[in-house]
Design a protein around this nucleic acid. Structure first.
Lengths: 156, 156
DNA sequence: AAAAGCCAACGAATTAAATTCGCTGGCCAT
DNA sequence: ATGGCCAGCGAATTTAATTCGTTGGCTTTT
């Protein structure tokens, strides 16, 4: 199965379907894209193999799971040397509380999204795990008061 | 099937598995939690019905799909009245480019995550869709230079 | 322009997984 | 102690995924 360089309209349609609900049967999808089962199946497998689809996951309801607090952290590192950065990034990757971390342009270095049960639990994470990282110079925490929109669907 | 109020250790184990990879077969999961097929199946269905699992989705590779740019937007609204807020939120929900939007504490009101092909495409979104919303007073854009970590898995 | 080769789609057959259902044993409450 | 309830179980059934050999159209080559 060779890597296909460009996706056609049907591939995009399939990706749109799967990124919104990966539980559709191939039969369902086949009907929606007007193909029969086997080419639809082949296309999906190819999209997976070629890495257009990274993974399939279940999205959990954090509020029902007692994870009611989301905090944004703006982190500034000591600027002296670059090795600080990879050391920091390595630690972040290992913290399950951090669900996203981006290196950004602007007045600070990293933007994190942190999930916690409540303020105390967040404070524990902050004091014991984040603030103690050797390269961290400054952290601002912004508390999420309302989650207006959250999606994993890309604009295709 | 009645709603179960508290989850036991096996339920949590199942959720952990499914939030990382929803393509495991029930047989797989049953083995990992040391149950047979049917109670495992029942538990999964119950977790879905009770809303602990919100949905199953495919996660796409945005870079391979020519969506190489992510931007964080800090948005401040005119503070005069509250109706601005729901008007703004309604518009945001309809923009596919915005993959997340949070009302936050701090110096501004909303924090957005926006996905675009490139800087020009982002600028078009900014000029034509975001900046023109009537209630918007100020927007700062921070460009994501590196995506260190992105996960949909909650810390269970 | 004709022939050859290639690719995507197809349908039927097979394999694998999900789902259903009636049964059993342990536990809690009366 | 006993009755009822709940969770787990295994077998049977249904549904879906996967495989594979075939076909037809398109492009490339001579």
């Amino acid at each position: 199965m060779a890597i296909k360089l460009s996706l056609d309209a049907l591939d995009i349609k399939i990706l749109k379907i799967l990124q919104n609900n990966s539980q559709h049967t191939i039969k369902d999808i086949a009907e929606q894209v007007n193909l029969s089962l086997s080419p639809t199946h082949d296309r999906i497998k190819r999209l997976e193999m070629d890495g257009f689809i990274k993974e399939y996951v279940g999205i959990l309801n954090r509020k029902k799971l007692n994870l009611g607090l989301m905090v944004h952290c703006q982190v500034t590192l000591e600027k002296q040397n670059r090795s600080n950065f990879s050391e920091f990034e390595q630690s972040i990757k290992e913290f399950p509380e951090v669900i996203s971390c981006h290196l950004v342009s602007g007045n600070f270095d990293y933007y994190l999204n942190v999930i916690s049960e409540d303020v105390e639990s967040y404070n524990r994470f902050y004091q014991e795990k984040l603030a103690v990282l050797p390269s961290v110079a400054h952290i601002s925490s912004l508390f999420v008061m309302d989650e207006i929109k959250t999606t994993t669907s890309l604009p295709l």
